[in-house]
Design a protein around this nucleic acid. Structure first.
Lengths: 238, 238
DNA sequence: TGATTTTATTTTGCATTCATTTTTTATAAG
DNA sequence: CTTATAAAAAATGAATGCAAAATAAAATCA
């Protein structure tokens, strides 16, 4: 009956909403598992979230499941319709634009903060991955490139040393991750080269600990990323 | 038995976590009411959240209450200790610093976005309140001053026209609102004058639609606000 | 046949119940 | 009188039960 193909995503201990990691409680574990389950795209966009099936899949009763659903709704991953259950939240082009802008703002902040406190060792690590990324870029290895790209942005956020920022950022990132924009990105070679140059500028500003400048670069960088991901004439639904 | 002094905070329909406004469902209403109840300081810092008492107070069973608690924990307002219930989350000086920085980052973003899309009418409204605030400043009317100050920052965020940003901002603002830093702020007259000058600069940059510049000013403005709120030598718990 | 009403089934929201764990109170020992 | 131990009370986490609502299915009529 249950047409869901989940295979126990236990171990993936994603650090998410900061104050909620009640390992040892069913609800806490379930929250993590369910979030991954949805983020990884096991449910179609706009699809109903099948309570019964998920209960059977995770071997729990409805109570902890519904608690987790409420949290995921607060995070914006699903939406709750009164008396009509939960649905996977669809991202309109406008939503995506909003998310990218906020992510851009948070990365801009991360860059600024990172300039204040990043150690030489941390910077060296970012630089190392940057060169690795350049390597992938030359070889047109999209998978490797993308992986490094993610890592760099993640490291900058981490270097900011602000747990609240990290948690907020992770929450928004989860919502975007459902969208397969990577495909669009990878296709546009011009964008790839441009992105590479932007990353050079990021590294440079970070090296000089030029917080305000880095802040600007990162925001624009995210804007360009969005532009590349969005079809040219996509309505912004304003 | 219940030493809680709540008097039905119904109507206050605060727009909060965007995807959760299930008016008509008990859980949704309760979430809003409970959040206000905690934000308004009806529970001591670090105090246990009394499930039983709250159930009686709101006339509901534990199920919807606990659902709301899970959401509030995800928002960071309370923390859940396995088998030991929920407690009102205390804000360490480090937490406060983190929150202010992220709020600063979000306001910086708001300023940048506002410059892109703010209308002359919207700007005029902000300018009007700014002058009103100056009036209060001259008269040393702290209450009026503070109110205007809040309004201006709120309007800038609104002018950004990004619902995701608004929701994220509101979530963090709620956590800070528990702290009575306003008292500290109001006491420091030097800071007040400085803040006034910073607001002049904000207005000026916004008038010129100088997004990047405004972004910087707003972040620094928030930093200074924090500095004024924090006792000089407060440990940053790094 | 196709649309519409009626009935059955499922799903949802919330209350209640139950087994554990924690906290409190009472009791005993040093 | 203080500290340690044991028993009682309360709380928490999760499962189950139940009424109302929504969806699906069947029956009726045009």
């Amino acid at each position: 009956m249950s047409e869901i193909s989940l295979d126990e995503h236990e171990g993936a201990a994603r650090e998410s909403a900061e104050a909620v990691r009640p390992s040892g409680t069913l609800h806490g574990e379930l929250l993590v598992a369910l979030r991954d389950f949805i983020v990884e795209g096991n449910l179609e966009d706009g699809a109903r979230v099948p309570e019964r099936a998920l209960c059977e899949r995770f071997n729990i009763s409805r109570t902890p499941l519904r608690e987790a659903l409420k949290v995921l709704a607060a995070e914006g991953l699903i939406e709750l319709l009164p008396n009509r259950g939960a649905r996977v939240r669809e991202l309109s082009p406008a939503d995506l634009r909003e998310l990218f802008d906020v992510m851009g703002g948070l990365e801009a902040l991360a860059g600024r903060l990172a300039c204040e406190r990043i150690t030489d060792a941390e910077f060296a690590e970012i630089e190392r991955i940057h060169h690795e990324m350049y390597h992938f870029y030359l070889r047109r290895d999209m998978h490797g490139y993308f992986h490094c790209n993610q890592a760099i942005h993640q490291l900058i956020v981490a270097a900011a040393g602000n747990a609240t920022l990290t948690a907020t950022y992770a929450g928004l990132a989860g919502r975007i991750r459902r969208v397969r924009y990577s495909a669009n990105l990878a296709k546009d070679r011009d964008r790839l080269g441009e992105a590479m140059r932007e990353h050079e500028a990021i590294l440079d500003a970070l090296r000089r600990r030029a917080g305000s400048e880095l802040s600007d670069i990162l925001f624009v960088h995210l804007r360009n990323k969005l532009k590349a991901a969005q079809p040219p004439g996509a309505s912004s639904d304003e």
